[in-house]
């Protein structure tokens, strides 16, 4: 394994753990996440905040699993980066927002890394 592949694997697994943790947390303890649902999202989707949390949790678990399994990594990472960008903008310039900005950048980097380094955009892993 080259250094590039090792670095990429660490980045991919690391981000996968992040999304899996947050996703499972929202599924298992949605109550503690509802306050994060922005008002505009509730008005736009016209569904209760708790269901938005569950849907978001499910999305993050699935996306995190795809990252962990290196399936469609590029597109999944791109989608997650956009997803995180919305969250980052919504949270704003706070400690959490800045942290999420870093995660957004890392996820976006994963989306743009060259496929020869092990990024999969096919159904099958590398």
């Amino acid at each position: 394994m080259t250094h590039e592949r090792l670095g990429l694997a660490i980045l991919r697994y690391g981000l996968a753990v992040v999304f899996l943790w947050f996703g499972f947390s929202q599924l298992f303890d949605g109550l503690n996440w509802v306050s994060w649902v922005p008002e505009w999202a509730v008005n736009f989707l016209n569904i209760p905040p708790a269901f938005i949390v569950l849907a978001n949790g499910l999305f993050e678990v699935i996306a995190g699993a795809l990252l962990a399994l290196n399936i469609w990594t590029r597109w999944v990472a791109l989608t997650l980066a956009l997803h995180l960008l919305v969250i980052t903008v919504e949270i704003g310039a706070t400690a959490i927002g800045v942290r999420d900005l870093g995660l957004t950048a890392a996820t976006l980097a994963l989306a743009f890394l060259p496929s020869k380094e092990g990024i999969s955009h096919e159904k099958d892993s590398q």
């Binding site: 694997a9 697994y13 996968a16 753990v17 899996l20 943790w21 499972f24 678990v61 995190g64 699993a65 990252l67 962990a68 399994l69 290196n70 092990g118 892993s125 590398q126």
Partner: peptide
């Protein structure tokens, strides 16, 4: 190996 590690991660984190 990558897939196995990924699957383990999912189970462990969950």
């Amino acid at each position: 190996v990558s897939t196995v590690i990924g699957a383990i991660l999912i189970v462990v984190v969950g």
